[in-house]
């Protein structure tokens, strides 16, 4: 199981700014070890951000997103106390969901 994500959601005016840090190797599949062996691809493929259970952002990503991905999103119509849930699944079927409240 992957390490927990760090999620911060903060109201700025009428928009909630959501920042997410995921813990993932994000191997492209083209990197070589010192001994010349290819490191197999291992990266997140799908991710979603949900506000109070409703999907607001659905992302598809490749290994060319940096290691330990950081994302910033903005959501209108949120208010303090709303629940933000972020999920991801990688190409090996590993997945993780974490939650935070809008501050």
């Amino acid at each position: 199981m992957a390490d927990p994500m760090k999620i911060r959601a903060q109201m700025k005016g009428d928009v909630a700014e959501v920042r997410v840090l995921m813990s993932h190797a994000m191997e492209t599949g083209t990197r070589k070890e010192a001994d010349g062996k290819l490191v197999p691809a291992h990266h997140i493929q799908n991710m979603t951000v949900a506000l109070n259970g409703k999907t607001v952002i659905a992302g598809q990503i490749a290994g060319s997103v940096s290691k330990n991905p950081v994302f910033g999103f903005k959501v209108k119509g949120a208010k303090a106390g709303d629940k933000v849930a972020v999920s991801w699944i990688d190409n090996k079927g590993d997945k993780r969901t974490d939650e935070a409240a809008v501050a």
Partner: peptide
């Protein structure tokens, strides 16, 4: 080597504003 890095879809009030870190 493969140009497409990410694609995000917005719904239910999400603003078309994204920040990412790419290789």
């Amino acid at each position: 080597p493969s140009p497409l890095a990410a694609q995000f879809e917005f719904s239910n009030g999400a603003v078309a504003d994204v920040s990412v870190r790419l290789k």
